[in-house]
């Protein structure tokens, strides 16, 4: 009796774990199948080379490059904000800050990542964009810059927290060796600690990039819905994610080519983030072995 109960429980728990595999399988299957029907109507060549993305207009073009350009632009801006600030925080907290300060600050910083993204979108549109319009002439009401900056603020904790863990994991003896030879703290940080923690820092940055690429609401609200092959941060752009939202919240018919296009966009997004996440996971795994 007890044996049977144990057996049933183990199987039930296994089913729970299996659901995660089914989730991944479901995502891949759905995206592939639906994207497949999309690519029966649109050639892969056009998809990757057409400079326009206009599925909702009468003259339809399906060139993913325009959406990728928008995604790329907002992501680069976000990383340009988040990387220096995040690293500055990580280095300060792990090498300079008093312990008690660190204990208070860390959870507060985590709050930045806990704020719902729709709220950040509001902030970008209502506060950051008007501010930018005041200091830079020619900023559109929707623009990549504002969305990118706010997205950067959102991902600061991803970089700071993971990088700080990486810095923290560097053995004390290494630092002491550097101090012993007369280096200042700054020299120790840049010549010893950061190089030793580089794999962890890289992994965290890649994960942050992936997070920025997949972020949806901030760019939907603040960056606009104008796909285009532009790298001008002052103009409206559209990201892959924002496009999926645009189609989903409009009344596009199920099964139409316009509707299928969200799966083509979705599979591109999934592939992109999947590769980045895998690289980050792999680097992290390798680095864990180094120090334990």
């Amino acid at each position: 009796m007890l044996k049977i109960k144990e057996y049933i429980i183990e199987k039930a728990l296994f089913m729970c774990a299996l659901i995660t595999v089914l989730t991944t399988a479901g995502i891949i299957l759905i995206l592939t199948v639906e994207a497949f029907s999309f690519f029966r109507n649109v050639s892969l060549y056009d998809f990757f080379t057409d400079p326009q993305w206009t599925p909702l207009y009468s003259e339809k073009h399906f060139g993913i490059l325009s959406l990728l350009a928008g995604t790329f632009l907002t992501t680069v801006i976000a990383i340009m904000v988040a990387l220096p600030v995040g690293m500055g925080i990580a280095i300060y907290l792990s090498e300079y800050a008093p312990r008690s300060f660190r204990k208070i600050i860390k959870p507060l910083l985590e709050l930045l990542a806990a704020v719902p993204t729709v709220v950040y979108g509001f902030f970008a549109l209502m506060v950051v964009t008007p501010f930018l319009q005041n200091i830079i002439p020619g900023v559109s009401g929707f623009n990549a810059l504002s969305a990118g900056i706010v997205m950067g603020v959102m991902i600061i904790p991803f970089i700071s927290s993971m990088s700080e863990d990486a810095l923290h994991a560097v053995p004390k003896s290494l630092r002491e060796a550097a101090y012993g030879m007369g280096s200042t703290r700054l020299q120790t940080v840049f010549r010893v600690t950061i190089p030793s923690a580089s794999s962890g820092i890289t992994a965290s940055t890649i994960l942050a990039i992936s997070r920025a690429i997949g972020e949806t609401m901030i760019v939907t609200i603040a960056a606009g819905q104008m796909p285009g092959l532009t790298l001008n941060p002052l103009k409206p752009v559209q990201t892959i994610t924002a496009y999926i939202v645009q189609v989903s919240s409009g009344d596009v018919q199920f099964g139409s080519l316009e509707h299928q296009s969200i799966f083509a966009a979705g599979i591109s997004l999934f592939a992109l983030t999947f590769i980045l996440n895998s690289v980050s996971f792999w680097i992290k795994k390798k680095y864990r072995i180094q120090y334990e």
């Binding site: 995660t20 995502i27 992936s210 997949g214 994610t241 999947f274």
Partner: peptide, 18 residues
């Protein structure tokens, strides 16, 4: 394990499609 690590990084909008 790899699967769960990856799922944690899948953009939320992809879950919407699923």
């Amino acid at each position: 394990e790899i699967n769960i690590a990856n799922l944690a990084g899948v953009p939320s909008i992809i879950y919407g499609i699923l």
